[in-house]
Write a protein that binds this DNA or RNA. Structure first.
Length: 291
DNA sequence: ACTAGCCCCTGGGAGC
DNA sequence: TGCTCCCAGGGGCTAG
């Protein structure tokens, strides 16, 4: 499940491989993934012959800044990830493939394929087809209500303890869903919120208004520590996340609570429990993370 | 102002 | 072995 570290891993790899290259063509068998513009023909027309000038991450979005004042935004949601491959489809086989299922899928979950000039192609794999693909005017995207609504980036220098403290104390609710809310802080999802709270020794259901300064400091420090460490390890692959080369991440070695229900806490030996909050499962140690 | 629930989707696990 | 049922989950949305 791509969260900030997995999306950051994809962006860093993509920058090495596809920067300055030009979109020649695009294919999909799941046009519903494309939310903007509404018609695939318009999307196709809009992306063709555009060169990739920059690639960056905002929250869990991957944004390709293109020539001609366009930006391609991809939110991978649950199972989306980019793959870079040397599938040698010539222009002729592309036309053949257009009429039927792709024969050269390296992965049967590829639902979008981008042909680039020179070298390997770019594919979007998405088992559950939840991903969001949008083509924007760059200016409009940067000024969009959506961008403005996103919370701060937790790894930016500007994300000080004071800012963190202010937004958490301002946001009422249970700490786990608050941490996961992209409008509060960008990029933290179910896995990393569980891991952060275990390290900070806070119960996922703690009311934000009851959290003391010292505890806030623990959460703040562990947000940075966990995310930085996960990026170094190239993300998690408990889910089906793979990097653009199709390789797994190594965060599993650092996993302490997520999907460890019934197993022993690595700190105190108590049995890890699971509960539901905000429609998501929260994993925690009932001894270390008392409410 | 909250929160619970629904929806999109599909593989995998459980139960029979 | 194979069928059916149910669940997970990001995030936007609605309904209570």
């Amino acid at each position: 499940m791509p969260e900030l570290p997995e999306v950051e891993t994809m962006v860093r790899d993509l920058k090495k491989k596809v920067l300055q290259r030009t979109f020649l063509n695009v294919w999909t068998d799941a046009p519903k993934l494309i939310k903007k513009p509404k018609r695939f023909a318009d999307f196709e027309k809009g992306i063709k012959r555009k060169r990739i000038l920059e690639i960056y991450r905002r929250a869990k979005n991957i944004i390709f800044e293109l020539s001609g004042g366009c930006s391609l935004l991809v939110h991978p949601k649950m199972t989306g990830h980019f793959l870079i491959g040397n599938w040698s489809l010539t222009d002729n086989s592309w036309h053949a493939e257009k009429r039927g299922p792709m024969k050269e899928k390296v992965n049967s979950y590829i639902h979008m394929m981008f042909w680039l000039d020179k070298g390997p192609m770019l594919a979007l794999s998405d088992l559950r087809k939840f991903a969001k693909v949008e083509l924007w005017r760059t200016e409009e995207l940067k000024e969009s209500e959506y961008f403005k609504s996103l919370g701060p980036e937790p790894l930016e220098k500007e994300f000080s303890f004071k800012i963190f403290k202010d937004i958490i104390t301002m946001t009422r609710g249970k700490i786990k869903p608050v941490l996961m809310n992209p409008k509060v802080i960008a990029g933290i999802g179910n896995i990393y919120s569980d891991e952060i709270l275990w390290r900070a020794r806070l119960h996922p259901l703690r009311d934000t208004r009851s959290i003391k300064e010292k505890e806030l400091k623990e959460i703040y420090n562990n947000i940075k520590k966990v995310l930085v460490s996960a990026i170094k390890l190239r993300g998690e692959s408990i889910s089906d996340f793979r990097d653009p080369q199709g390789k797994k991440g190594f965060f599993d070695t650092e996993r302490r609570v997520y999907q460890r229900e019934g197993e022993k806490c690595r700190r105190c030996g108590s049995i890890i429990k699971r509960l539901k909050v905000g429609g998501r499962s929260a994993h925690f140690c009932p001894h270390c993370q008392s409410n």
